[in-house]
Amino acid sequence: MPEWHGWQKLKYEAELDPKFADEITAIPGGEKLANCIQCGTCSGMCPLSTYMDYTPRQIVAMVRAGFKGEVLSSYTSWLCASCYACTVECPKGIKITDIMYSIKRRAIQEKVYPKKFPIPVLAKEFFGNVLRNGRSTEMLVVIKLYLKTAPLSMINQAIMGMKLFFQGRIGLKMESIKRKKELQTVLNAMDKEAVSTGKGTL
């Protein structure tokens, strides 16, 4: 078939990943994804769907069908701001926000997100900061985020940063808990991938 401009390449079953849906839905309540009726309520409710490359409804269909590469490299899950509007309105009770989280985790594990895209970088910096100190130091996380993604745009933020500093809303003190060992023992013992509860039949 000729590759016309704007003509989408079709995917055939052999190219899809039949296990992908099971991987993504291996979260508490994830099996409900199979009940999706593609009504589009999630996309309609989502305040961010306008900015997404695939709408939430499309992502759900693509997860189910096994479009692994497309889903994991899509911006959709990263733009999800966890407002849960889709989750509470879904007539089939699908926890779409949680599905988005599952996609994010998989994308990080498989390292298939754009390199300097700030959202996963923020998640990683925040994660590391809390793992080491038990609390997050907002200033430190933000500075690291900018250094790793867009150092020059830090200048744009400087005025706001100074204002916040003089208002005592950001500081240079490293926040930390006392019993770091205790927390790390708990977290190390939780060192396991998401527990699967009930297998979906997809």
């Binding site: 985790r105 998640a123 809390v130 793992l131 609390r135 013992a189 939780m190």
Partner: peptide
């Protein structure tokens, strides 16, 4: 000696550790 709740970032990285926090 409370610790960070993990907010949205922890769940984006590791669901079980988020529960642990």
């Amino acid at each position: 000696d409370w610790n960070c709740c993990g907010a949205t970032s922890y769940n984006s990285m590791d669901e079980m550790k988020a529960f642990g926090l």
